[in-house]
Computed example of a mutant assay.
Amino acid sequence: MKKNLSKLFILLLALNIFLIGCTNEQDAVSSQPADEPTEQVDVINEDTNKNTSTATIPEAVNKPLKIAAIMQMSIGTFSSQYVAGVKEQVEKFGGEVQIYNSNNDLAQMATHLDTAVNQGVDGILIDHGRADALEAGVKKAIEAGIPVVVFDNDIDLPGVTKIDQDDYSLAWDSLKTLAQDIDGEGNIVYIWVGGFTPMERRNVIYEAFKTRYPAIQEIARFGTASANTALDTQTQMEAILKQYPKGEIDAVFAPWDEFAKGAVRAIEQAGRDEISVYGIDLSDEDLQIIQKENSAWKASAATDPAEVGKIQVRFLYQKIAGEPTPQIFSLDPYLVKQTDLPKQNISMDEIGDYIDGWGESNAATSAWMEQLEQQVKE
């Protein structure tokens, strides 16, 4: 029933956009380049992004391509599973990908971007980073005819597709669950760090959340991003627990799974079973923690990190093939609650058996992709 309603909503929204476009934009539909849509689209739903116009493999992708994946950092299991998804999809298409890890150094990230452009790669993937550090390099890539697709980045340039996890929905799903579980009142700890596009977006919703639930009070806030974020978070959370004895903290909001892991470990080692943790992002390691008996981690809003990587690669190959791609694309997030999962441990590959819709995305698919994958196999 939920899926049917969702599809009906999408159809009505699409019809509305179509009618507006027919009325106001008839003269604007001219022969623009494939990667420059006639109007910027704020949100593209996964089900509307299928291109099945031809089953012939375009010449531009019918050969081994060299792809550069430039990352702001590679911390934790989310990043490792994202990289695995990127590598898997590129290899299925017969290409090769070089991963550039910038260790949270934006200047180094910009240097990696310039290196990739100068090497004349066929396409560039960017993971996180900020426009003020990377926009010049991305413009250089576009001028060189190298397509670019960014993930969780604030770059806004014509022809550059940027994808995200719909951070606003992720944050709201997790926070709303927190509020409902503590009956709309209590004391919470907020673990957060600025300087990252998805974190900034999630914080927008957190600020709205405080207005929506005035009886929920933030009593402590901290957070750092480092090579050992989970361990640093655990140490900081241990200090908070000493400052606020049993009964003074009801929940923790951790909008990054590395934060959540550290908080859970500190809470469990202190025997503070009255505190619940609500997070964002998910990995195999996170699942093991959530499924542990009496775990403090009650829910996490997430997308499949490997699927994120695969979709980003598919958009890039569509660009290389000269096919139209959206300016903005948001993946549908899912709320994974502890109570929805079985007692036995499961992996990310099995979540779809318990969370309706998980792992079923057909985003950024073209008919020729299946043929290309089969050709590479042979």
Score class of each variant (00 low, 15 high):
Thr365Val: 15
Ala133Arg: 10
Met71Leu: 15
Glu91Thr: 15
Ser283His: 08
Asp181Arg: 13
Leu287Phe: 10
Lys7Ser: 14
Leu13Cys: 10
Val83Arg: 11
Ser347Glu: 10
Met73Ser: 14
Thr161Val: 12
Lys337Leu: 14
Val41Pro: 00
Pro305Gly: 07
Ile249Asp: 03
Phe253Trp: 03
Thr235Cys: 00
Ala28Cys: 04
Ala208Arg: 10
Asp127Ile: 11
Ser169Glu: 15
Gly352Phe: 08
Asp127Leu: 13
Ile57Phe: 04
Lys176Arg: 12
Gly223His: 02
Pro64Glu: 05
Glu25Gln: 14
Ala301Tyr: 01
Gln374Leu: 13
Glu218Asn: 09
Glu238Val: 00
Gly76Asp: 03
Glu274Tyr: 08
Ile188Leu: 04
Ile290Gln: 03
Lys162Asn: 15
Ile267His: 04
Pro37Glu: 11
Lys92Cys: 03
Asn16Val: 13
Lys63Ile: 01
Ala230Pro: 01
Ile289Asn: 04
Ile240Pro: 00
Arg314Ala: 07
Tyr168Pro: 00
Thr177Ala: 12
Pro33Tyr: 14
Asp47Val: 15
Ser283Arg: 06
Val336His: 04
His128Asp: 11
Ile20Cys: 09
Gln288Phe: 07
Gly279Glu: 09
Val61Trp: 05
Trp172Cys: 00
Glu274Gly: 02
Gly184Gln: 10
Glu258Ser: 08
Leu178Asp: 00
Ile205Thr: 12
Gly76Ser: 07
Trp368Asp: 08
Gln72Lys: 09
Ala230Tyr: 01
Ile142Trp: 04
Ser347Val: 03
Ile75Pro: 01
Gly184Pro: 10
Phe315Trp: 05
Leu113Met: 11
Asn362Val: 12
Trp192Leu: 01
Ala367Ile: 08
Glu59Pro: 00
